[in-house]
Amino acid sequence: MARDRNDHTDEPGEGGRGLSRRGFLTSMGTGALSVAAATQVSAEAVPQAEVLAAEELSKVKLRVNGHDRELLVEPRWSLAYVLRDELGLTGTKVSCDRGECGACTVLINGVPRYACITLAVEAEGAEVTTVEGLMEGEELGTVQQAFLERDAFQCGYCTSGQIMAVEGLLRANPNPSIEEIRRHMAGNLCRCGTYPHIFMAAQRASELKGSSGGAS
């Protein structure tokens, strides 16, 4: 489950030595950077753009699966890293880590994007949806259910990314053709080769969403 906060300095360091290595480095670094920042401000008497220092944890607000989260992140952290390692949302997977395989697909403001090549700080102010966010209480969400019904995975590693890509597709296009599905899903690789079943699951999810939408 997601942690309530990610305050590193409160956590025991590696091997339980009290102050963590990162916390130590951070406190060392702060002084030097403050001096640098002060010099900059006096040199240029103009309003400064928001700046997050390197090697330091800065507070950012993310909205993940409908919940506002205030987190401490470094600018260089990817959204995938923050979701998994800071928020404990390990449904989002990292595989290629370079924006090609699709395992890390999440929705940002409702559209599928690769979380491994999105900086967490860039997602500030956006609505982030992960596979955990598709659950309806303890029940599987529609797309998850469709993947189960159509046996649309083998090893399962790429599955959450596949599910998020289908979710993104159906939000934009509730009744996609098989060609539209194939085209939209091209950014998600499956090493086990379960593509035919993934496409069937996308069609099934479209049916399920259509019937539940019609009933309400």
């Binding site: 753009a49 928001e50 700046v51 997050l52 220092a53 390197a54 090697e55 470094e74 600018p75 260089r76 952290w77 990817s78 880590d97 370079r98 900086l119 700080v121």
Partner: peptide
Amino acid sequence: MYVSDFRYHRPET
């Protein structure tokens, strides 16, 4: 994957 440190600026204009 390790990404080297950088300062992150977010200008509004």
